[in-house]
């Protein structure tokens, strides 16, 4: 579904991704694990189109079409969604207004009719309830004053509302206690579908107990250095990354 080929990317002329080859298959969950500084977050930002990063080589094909030339909003419309490690606070923009603008922008770009206010609110309410997002949170400015757990639930709520096809989760477990982690993982699992693919980026194996991956990749120094099944994550939990850090 999504093919990453020989992807090289730099920030401030420093090369972070040094030739990544990765195939995300429809209906599957792919975990990317790696030590700090291996390029995990960079990979998520490059896939979603952050302009601070320069792609120096390679391509990323979604259904055979290169998305690297697309703007972030075009990628979102094409179905790419990044759940941020550190969700951004947007003071002055009410959460509901933000969600409605985003949902309708994406629908418009996909050639679907915009949702009328009643249908939108119905959809929002049903998704929010499943994730334990209170009405009061939806009335506040986006992410402003939210706890770490609330912010992550808000990311998953946005994910559910925007109905993406390529779902990238960047360290979604960071800052979550075990109860919040369960809620978030349930939200993610509920979105698993045959026409969707997941890229779950994490430092720790813990998240993968709840979102069980089909494939696990180890990223180190900007390259995929090992690929295996779910058992690879458990093995890493015991041995650590020491064996994978390039000299």
């Amino acid at each position: 579904m999504l093919q990453i080929k020989n992807l090289h990317a730099t920030i401030d002329e420093k090369e972070i991704l040094k030739g990544i080859d990765l195939t995300l298959e429809a209906g599957k969950v792919h975990a990317v694990m790696g030590p700090n500084g291996s390029g995990k977050s960079t990979l998520s930002y490059v896939l979603s189109g952050r302009e601070d990063y320069a792609v120096t080589d390679g391509e990323v094909l979604l259904d055979g079409k290169n998305i690297l030339a697309m703007s972030p909003e075009e990628r979102a419309a094409a179905g790419v969604f990044l759940a941020f490690q550190y969700p951004i606070e947007i003071p002055g923009v009410q959460t509901t207004t933000f969600l409605k603008t985003a949902v309708n922008a994406v629908r418009k770009a996909r050639g679907e009719p915009e949702l009328d206010p009643v249908s939108f609110l119905k959809k929002l309410k049903s998704n929010a309830e499943k994730l334990g997002v209170r009405d009061e949170m939806l009335k506040r400015p986006l992410n402003v004053g939210f706890s770490g757990g609330e912010k992550k639930r808000m990311e998953i709520l946005q994910m559910a509302m925007l109905e993406p096809r390529v779902l990238i989760l960047d360290e979604t477990d960071s800052g979550l206690d075990i109860d919040a982690l369960k809620i978030v993982a349930e939200g993610v699992n509920a979105l698993r579908a045959p026409d969707r693919t997941f890229l779950v980026i994490t430092h720790y194996q813990r998240l993968l107990d709840y979102i069980v991956p089909d494939v696990v990749h180890v990223l180190s120094a900007g390259k995929i250095v090992k690929t295996g099944g779910a058992e690879l994550a458990k093995q890493l939990e015991e041995t650590g990354y020491a064996g994978y850090i390039a000299a």
């Binding site: 969700p87 002055g92 985003a102």
Partner: peptide, 25 residues
């Protein structure tokens, strides 16, 4: 630029994202 990217990554076109941020300002 960070919130701007965040909004665009959610599918909001750049011009609209800028407008929303200015209104919020």
């Amino acid at each position: 630029e960070t919130p701007l990217f965040y909004m665009r990554a959610r599918g909001i076109p750049e011009a609209e994202a800028r407008r929303m941020m200015l209104l919020a300002f």
